[in-house]
Design a protein around this nucleic acid. Structure first.
Lengths: 336, 336
DNA sequence: GTGAAAGCGCTAACAC
DNA sequence: GTGTTAGCGCTTTCAC
């Protein structure tokens, strides 16, 4: 087993002290150029790299960011993770990723674990269960330890920290407005049970717009378990006289398109469809889905930027902020 | 800034030595029960947790696995990552995830970085560029350092390490055989340029089966840039008289379905379609795609299991193995 | 210019 | 039973 070379070994081989070698590697002007050269030469020869663990122990900085996500099979979070990783690695940070599977207890466990692993900071999207239970002691503990947190998308007002969110309410208002503007009058909203905070906001937006527009009616369909998604939507479409559907997540919209096709409804002639989250399904449905893009990559990247900035430029009285990333309506073929 | 409590502080407050405290926390029988109790009590009070950095420095184990992926927006790798994370966390390992974006130089950089961060082991899927360039010095370096590596899906014979792969050749043979068995005779294979090793195997499988079956013809379409995917496929379908398509990745198959719909071809009556990778698109296309499932989660999970097992039960003369995860053909509605 | 020494927080062999 | 000591690999202050 080849062991990684240490300062000690370099020092010994060069007949120098450890501290001299250490300083030489940092090109300390205290050290003679000649020594510096000798040291660098041998260090290069052995491909010396300082042991990150030891450096971290000394500096109490690990150049590591803990990323806590509720899901990863959801394309939205995969995109966000991508944005985070890109941005973090740009600044020399590694990310350790944990997936809570929407579970509160897993979230607590991971946050504590990461904290005791001395990550420099956290990027978090809350799990659904955490949002329901409204318990945030694990984050309060971080704050007491003075570990910076940036939350994105799934956030809570109860925790004072930087946040990067999407204005879901405005987004759904725009989507509905677009439907109304293109002549739709009998609008259905299909929502999944999950995603409380976010879904609630989206629904609020919907209601505001429909309330303001005379002659526009609204029907809601709440979906249960994903097993029966398709049948529920199919039945809903059959039994309701509607001319537009807003799916509060991507799957709901995609399935709506498929079931309409199955029932022989023409899209967008008979029914216009808009979805949330501009993922794979939206791009590869037929017809292609008009969709609210939440710019997940940007969200993640921005969260990472804010955190890195906070880590690299520590300030005593930091004032937290909430940043809103604009959504955009990507108009494709499922609307008029 | 509250500092995390250390052994030293506990020792001081209890008027004990650091080592006594350390041993007490481990319930060392050397220590009197009374002391043990006192120590535990105070440790609990302060919610003491050993500093992972210090423990790692001492033990040269970080309980961390470096995961190097070529992509994350690809559902296959997202699923694999999920499997890895689940399995790793089960055994108390954290994962630090790096995404090479199919770039060789990024891969090298990340592997070195992770190695100098003292990850205990690696789980890797090679980047496309690395596979093309056929350069693996960065892994040879790991082997010299005696750091275990498990590769999955995108592997190379040039590196001796544990591997978890899918038998792509058998998988595509089965897919084609299924098409033949259900009456298809004029089969098209649509392949993307990328994914060399894997795509090559899949194509080999295809050719073997078509060669063995008299009366079965094969046409190939190689796709360029994703921008023009759809047009290319549409034109191809228009100008070729075929009754079945095997898409060598999920997108190719999904787009084939959509373009067939557009052209008014009935699926599966006019054209049968099979895809690779059982992702979101396959489940939410219309009609639903018959697809080769590579069980990405299992792949990832198995890779993690093998690595963890190797890490937790170190043996001197370890013999590497290659494990093949069986694929399965998930028959849905796009085939007869 | 170079080196000795302390210390980051922990473990473990070895006193007493 | 408890404490002392050395050491993991590094940085940094201070002495020479």
């Amino acid at each position: 087993m080849r062991k990684k070379v240490t300062l000690k070994q370099l020092a010994k081989e060069l007949n120098l002290s450890i501290s001299t070698v250490s300083k030489s590697l940092k090109n300390d002007p205290e050290i003679s150029q000649k020594t510096i050269n000798r040291v660098h030469e041998l260090a290069d020869f052995y491909n010396y790299k300082p042991n990150a663990l030891a450096v971290s122990l000394k500096s109490s900085k690990t150049k590591t960011i803990g990323v806590v996500l509720p899901e990863i099979l959801n394309h939205f979070f995969a995109k966000a993770l991508f944005g985070i990783e890109q941005e973090a690695s740009k600044s020399g940070y590694k990310i350790v990723t944990c997936i809570t599977n929407e579970s509160y207890s897993k979230e607590v466990e991971y946050v504590e674990m990461l904290n005791y692993s001395s990550v420099d900071g956290f990027i978090v999207a809350l799990s659904q269960e955490t949002q329901v239970l409204n318990k945030f002691d694990h984050y309060q503990a971080l704050k007491r330890d003075n570990v910076p947190i940036v939350m994105f998308d799934r956030v809570s007002e109860e925790i004072e920290c930087d946040k990067v969110i999407v204005d879901d309410k405005v987004a759904s208002k725009n989507a509905i407005q677009y439907l109304v503007d293109t002549g739709c009058r009998k609008i259905a909203v299909i929502k999944t049970i999950g995603d409380l905070s976010v879904a609630k906001l989206r629904l609020e937006g919907v209601k505001e717009v429909t309330a303001q527009n005379n002659g526009v009616s609204l029907v809601e369909l709440s979906l249960g378990d994903s097993e029966s998604f398709e049948n529920e939507i199919e039945n809903f479409l059959k039994t309701n006289d509607i001319d537009a559907v807003l799916g509060l997540d991507e799957t709901a919209a995609a399935v709506t398109i498929n079931m309409s096709l199955k029932l022989g409804y023409k899209i967008p002639e008979d029914i216009s469809v808009i979805g949330f989250t501009d993922g794979l399904l939206s791009k590869h449905s037929y017809p292609k889905l008009t969709t609210v893009s939440q710019h997940a990559e940007d969200l993640g990247a921005r969260a990472a930027q804010i955190l890195v900035n906070q880590l690299d430029n520590f300030t005593e009285n930091y004032k937290t902020k909430t940043e809103i990333i604009k959504t955009s309506l990507i108009v494709r073929d499922s609307t008029n």
